[in-house]
C-alpha cells in the first residue's frame, strides 16, 4: 500500500504562473481553464525510479573524446531535500546547458557563436544517501533570444529532477550570483516572490572551489513534500484546500 498522504499545497507566489505575459512563448501555450485538483492516489504518490546501471552518470561535462572544453571550469555541489528538510537520496538529476560562448549543441540553436566539440552539453548525476550531488562543468555563456529587443538569457544550467513521486517532478534553472542579466530576464522574473527567485541563484563558495582547478558553486534544490503524518480518521481530505 502506497502512502497516499497529500502533497503539501504550494506556497503562494513561489511558483511562476502559466500565463507569465512577460515571456512571450506563454501566450499560446498557457491553459485558460483552471487546473483540476486531484487527490493523491498511487498514480501521483509513486513515480519512476532510475538506477545508475540503466541510466549511467555523466558527472564531468568538460571532457569529450580526449579533449577539454573551453571556458571557466566550475564544480557544482548541493543537496536535494524535501519540504520537510529530509534529504532525497539516490535520485536522478539531469542537467543541460550552453557552452562557454552561449551556444547549445542543438540544431535549433542558430546563435552565431562557436560550438565547442569538447564540451558535453548534458549530464546526469545521482544524489548519494544524504541527498548530495556534485558535477564538473564550465560556466555557461549568456545568449541572445527573441523575446523582446536585445533580450539575453543570463548564465544558467537547466535541471530536471523526478524525486520519489509523479507529484515531485520539477524542471528548473540554476543561475549565477552577480549576473547583471538577472534583473532583466522574463523567465527568472516570472516567479512573483523575490526570495523564491533568489533561491534559484547558486552561491559562489570558496570552500568548494578547488585550488588550481575550478570555481565552486553551491545549489540546493527542494522537492515538494507531503505532510508528515498521514490522515487516519478515514475521512476524505482530498478536496481540502480548494
Amino acid at each position: 500500500m502506497s502512502d497516499l498522504t497529500p502533497y503539501r499545497p504550494l506556497v503562494g507566489g513561489t511558483q511562476p504562473p502559466y500565463d507569465a505575459g512577460i515571456y512571450g512563448s506563454t501566450k499560446l501555450r498557457a491553459p485558460k481553464q483552471a487546473l483540476v485538483q486531484v487527490p493523491t492516489s498511487i498514480t501521483e504518490a509513486t513515480g519512476p525510479q532510475f538506477s545508475e546501471s540503466r541510466y549511467p552518470s555523466v558527472i564531468d561535462l568538460t571532457k569529450v573524446n580526449g579533449g577539454e572544453a573551453q571556458g571557466q571550469r566550475i564544480v557544482v555541489e548541493g543537496r536535494v531535500l524535501d519540504e520537510n528538510g529530509r534529504p532525497v537520496p539516490h535520485t536522478m538529476i539531469e542537467i543541460w546547458q550552453a557552452n562557454s560562448t552561449g551556444r547549445y549543441h542543438h540544431p535549433g540553436d542558430q546563435h552565431d557563436a562557436p560550438l565547442d566539440p569538447y564540451f558535453q552539453g548534458a549530464g546526469r548525476v545521482f544524489t548519494d544517501s544524504e541527498g548530495r550531488y556534485r558535477y564538473t562543468s564550465i560556466k555557461p555563456g549568456a545568449y541572445p533570444w527573441r523575446n523582446h529587443h536585445n533580450a539575453w538569457r543570463p548564465n544558467h544550467i537547466h535541471y530536471s529532477l523526478f524525486g520519489p513521486g509523479f507529484g515531485t517532478r520539477v524542471i528548473t534553472q540554476m543561475y549565477f550570483e552577480g549576473d547583471p542579466l538577472l534583473k532583466l530576464d522574463p523567465i527568472f522574473h516570472s516567479i512573483p516572490d523575490e526570495a523564491a527567485r533568489n533561491r534559484l541563484i547558486a552561491d559562489f563558495d570558496i570552500d568548494l572551489t578547488v585550488p588550481e582547478w575550478a570555481l565552486g558553486y553551491r545549489f540546493d534544490i527542494v522537492l515538494r513534500g507531503r505532510d508528515a503524518t498521514p490522515f487516519e480518521d478515514g475521512n476524505d481530505h482530498s478536496h481540502e484546500g480548494h
Binding site: 504550494l10 506556497v11 513561489t14 511558483q15 511562476p16 515571456y23 512563448s25 548541493g78 531535500l81 524535501d82 519540504e83 520537510n84 528538510g85 539531469e94 543541460w96 550552453a98 547549445y104 549543441h105 542543438h106 535549433g108 540553436d109 552539453g121 548534458a122 546526469r124 537547466h158 530536471s160 520539477v170 524542471i171 528548473t172 534553472q173 523567465i187 527568472f188 516570472s190 516567479i191 523564491a196 527567485r197 533561491r199 534559484l200 552561491d203 553551491r218 545549489f219 540546493d220 534544490i221 527542494v222 522537492l223 515538494r224 513534500g225
Partner: peptide
C-alpha cells in the same frame, strides 16, 4: 544556503534545447 523552512524550488521552463538529454 541552509533552509530552515524549506519551500519547494520554483519551476522554470524546459526551454527549446532539452533534447540534449539522452532520450
Amino acid at each position: 544556503m541552509t533552509l530552515a523552512t524549506p519551500i519547494a524550488t520554483a519551476s522554470q521552463t524546459i526551454g527549446p534545447y532539452w533534447h540534449l538529454l539522452p532520450y
